[in-house]
């Protein structure tokens, strides 16, 4: 028996919004410790990893490890039927071929349930090595979304250059070039408005705008985003999911031939 109840159901709706453009289908691995999803996009350029801790749920039970392969378009359609303040419960029997989503209004006066067929997915699972990144940049997630959107007007790629002076995002294309520089904030009233740079050594890497823009669909999940970079390894774009977990996007850099 698997059952996970989340009073803040809107978080799950936001998680789906954050992955459904990148992934058509994926497996949710349910275990005693929580729920995890790892999947590559169709072109295998990026990898998405979602981690929802068992303690983050208001009720969590997982008697046996369970892999639930889901069509994310279908799952998203179902979650669209939940109101933002609904309590969401996911339920499945051991060895089941369906999962049930239960939505309860905060007053408990309306209860809906939707059953969805599960899929058998044969997906590669990649091992992500522990890495000490040369640069970790924390910035407001809305600012990052704005930068990616603005620079996408100029070219297909964004160059992210991090040094002790700050971080510079640049794009170049037919209409010209764009550069956006962010300095580390000296003092801020609110922590989520801060730009914080932890740097061991300067790093400059180039990434595809298309993917960065898809990652920023996670913006509603968290006021801050962190970008971790090291030379010649994938960028990690990480958003926290309330207090219950985090979503990480790994994007392979573009490399000079």
């Amino acid at each position: 028996m698997f059952e996970a109840r989340l009073v803040q159901g809107s978080l799950l709706k936001k998680v789906l919004d954050a992955i459904k453009e990148l992934l058509n289908e994926a497996s949710w691995d349910c275990a005693d410790s929580g729920i995890q999803l790892q999947a590559m996009d169709n072109s295998h350029v990026s990898l998405v990893s979602v981690n929802l801790r068992a303690e983050g749920f208001d009720k969590y039970r997982c008697d046996r490890n369970l892999i639930m392969g889901m069509d994310l378009t279908s799952m998203s359609k179902i979650l669209k039927c939940a109101a933002n303040d609904d309590i969401i419960t996911m339920k499945a029997q051991d060895n089941a071929d369906t999962v049930t989503f239960i939505f309860e209004s905060p007053s408990q006066e309306k209860v809906s349930d939707y059953e969805m067929k599960l899929m058998n997915l044969d997906q590669d699972h990649l091992g992500i090595p522990e890495t000490d990144y040369a640069c970790v940049i924390k910035l407001p997630s809305g600012e990052f979304a704005r930068i990616c959107r603005d620079l996408s007007n100029f070219g297909e790629s964004i160059v992210i250059a991090c040094s002790k002076e700050g971080v510079k995002f640049s794009a170049a294309g037919d209409i010209g070039t764009g550069n956006i520089k962010l300095a580390q904030t000296s003092s801020v009233d609110k922590e989520e408005e801060a730009v914080i740079i932890e740097m061991q050594e300067p790093v400059t890497l180039t990434f595809a705008c298309r993917y960065l823009n898809m990652f920023t669909k996670a913006t509603p999940l968290s006021p801050q985003v962190s970008l971790s970079m090291s030379p010649d390894v994938p960028l990690v774009v990480e958003y926290s999911i309330g207090d219950i977990g985090q979503i990480q996007y790994f994007l392979a850099p573009k490399i000079d031939d």
Partner: peptide, 14 residues
């Protein structure tokens, strides 16, 4: 010219 590698170039199947 820069080219896009796949993520599999960096992370091995576990």
């Amino acid at each position: 010219m820069s080219s896009q590698k796949t993520i599999k170039n960096f992370f091995k199947p576990s």
